[in-house]
C-alpha cells in the first residue's frame, strides 16, 4: 500500500493519470455530442425555402398524422413538384445548369434510386415514440423540431432524453390553473387518468 502511494507521488504517474481521466471524460462528452448532433444528409435539403412556399409539414411527412413514424419523402414525391417547376421547364433548362443539390435529386430520379435520408431525431431501440397522439394533442411540429422556416438542413433542437419527454408530460397533466382554470372535478379526474397513462413506464418502454 505504501509502495503504491509512493508510486502515485511521482509527477509522471500523476500526469499520466490526469491524461487518462481527461480521455475518459472527453470520450463521454464526444459520445453524448454524437447523439445530439445532426447527421450528414445525402441532399442538403433547404427546409426554409419549402416552408416559406407555404408547403405544410404533413405534405412530405404525412405519417405524423396517423402513425408512429412521420416518414421521409421518396424521390418520387420530390419529383412530383420538381419535375414541373416553371423556373426550369418554361423554357427548359438543361439539368447541368440546375443548382447542385437539385442535380443530385435529378440523378436519384433518373437512376430510380431511393434517397437515403438520415433520421435526425432518433430514440433508442427500447423507446417507442408515436407521432399520432402528439399531433392529436394539438402540439405543433415546431414545439419539438424548431422553426423550420429559419433552418436549412434539419438539426436537433432539443436534448432528446426521458427528462425532456416527462417534463412536458408532467406539465400538460398537472391539475393547475392553466390546465383546469375553473377547478372542474370532471377535468380533474380526466387529468389524473391522463397523468397515470403519460407517466407510465409501459407507455414508451416495451
Amino acid at each position: 500500500m505504501t509502495k503504491l502511494l509512493e508510486y502515485l507521488k511521482k509527477p509522471g504517474v500523476q500526469i499520466l493519470l490526469l491524461i487518462g481521466f481527461l480521455t475518459v471524460i472527453s470520450a463521454g462528452v464526444w459520445g453524448f455530442y454524437q447523439t445530439q448532433t445532426s447527421p450528414e444528409q445525402p441532399i442538403l435539403f433547404p427546409h426554409n425555402i419549402h416552408v416559406n412556399f407555404q408547403i405544410p409539414c404533413l405534405y412530405c411527412h404525412p405519417g405524423a398524422l396517423r402513425q408512429a413514424s412521420a416518414g421521409l419523402p421518396t424521390e418520387q414525391k420530390c419529383w412530383a413538384c420538381h419535375g414541373q417547376l416553371k423556373k426550369y421547364y418554361q423554357p427548359p433548362v438543361p439539368v447541368e445548369q440546375w443548382p447542385p443539390e437539385l442535380q443530385k435529386l435529378a440523378n436519384y430520379v433518373k437512376n430510380s434510386q431511393p434517397i437515403n435520408w438520415v433520421p435526425v431525431y432518433q430514440v433508442p431501440d427500447f423507446v417507442h415514440f408515436n407521432h399520432r397522439p402528439h399531433i392529436a394533442a394539438s402540439l405543433n411540429c415546431e414545439t419539438c423540431h424548431g422553426d423550420m422556416s429559419k433552418k436549412t438542413v434539419a438539426t436537433v433542437e432539443e436534448t432528446v432524453n426521458m427528462g425532456w419527454c416527462l417534463k412536458c408530460h408532467r406539465a400538460k397533466t398537472e391539475n393547475n390553473l392553466q390546465n383546469n382554470p375553473n377547478n372542474d372535478p370532471a377535468i380533474t379526474t380526466q387529468l389524473s387518468e391522463k397523468r397515470t397513462k403519460l407517466l407510465d413506464c409501459g407507455t414508451c418502454h416495451y
Partner: peptide, 15 residues
C-alpha cells in the same frame, strides 16, 4: 420490474 398503473400489467423495463 414495475407495475403499470395505466394498463395494470407487470412491466419489465429493459433499459
Amino acid at each position: 420490474s414495475v407495475h403499470s398503473q395505466a394498463q395494470d400489467l407487470n412491466l419489465q423495463v429493459y433499459n
